[in-house]
Amino acid sequence: MSALRIEKGSSSHSAYDLRDYHSEVIEKHTLAVLVDNEAGVLARVIGLFSGRGYNIESLTVAEVNHDSHLSRITVVTTGTRDVIEQIKAQVGRIVPVHEVHDLTVEGPSIERELALFKVQGTGNNRIEALRLAEIFRANVVDSTLESFVFEMTGPSEKIDAFADLMRPLGLVETARTGVAALARGGKG
């Protein structure tokens, strides 16, 4: 609250920290939202994003605490700082939402995604695909004489990179889970 020493006639200072409020830079933020695991709760969150014109880059949801019926929704979204602040406030006031965490600004966090890639090919392409899979620590979870299905876990960028490499080698189908994320450190 030190920023409260506001000069008269000035709007350039804020009670928040010193940020470039009117920045038009689009940022990507990962939000973790703890919600009651009840019917329709995902529709409420998604409906808010579509209804107010916010972006969803990826979204995952599953129950994480069976006893207290809590689910965790991880949303990767993009927008200016103003829009991200607004998204958090809007999500936060949905009645079954318990907590909203912006993992992108709340300190270091860890993000993982699981992906499955079906790669079709024979000969050198097939050998190259397998070799690259080893480098990326992707597992072969299905194989025929003409195809592999690779399973890979990692940050989204790593999965993007692997997909780029597989494309010329016969990538025919991809399935991705979207991002799951946690803050680093021992605090829950």
């Binding site: 506001i6 006639g9 103003d82 406030a89 936060g92």
Partner: peptide, 24 residues
């Protein structure tokens, strides 16, 4: 344009939704 703005509201999503304020 020349004012310092205080915004008292019970709904956090009303703050800075349309107009940036200095003291929410």
């Amino acid at each position: 344009p020349h004012s310092t703005k205080i915004h008292i509201d019970i709904d956090p999503s009303s703050i800075n939704k349309v107009i940036r304020v200095d003291l929410p």
